[in-house]
Amino acid sequence: MTTETIAVPEIHCDHCRTSIEGALAPLDGVARASVDIDTRQVTVDYDEATIDRDALIGAIEDQGYEVPTT
């Protein structure tokens, strides 16, 4: 199990939280996804064997957010 923190600067309100958590949580291999509105970060616990970071970022981008490459 890996924990990854992804910065999404456009996170703004509860709506964003619902969208991102709702997009990540159903993915295979994602154990837990939570959005911190204050720090504009998404924290994901996931299983590396099933899913990788790029797929997580892809899911966030599909919601219309930009994820800056670090």
Partner: peptide
């Protein structure tokens, strides 16, 4: 839409 970032998301999609 509830905020400016909603608008940005819809626009991007």
């Amino acid at each position: 839409m509830t905020c400016g970032s909603c608008a940005a998301r819809v626009q991007r999609i």
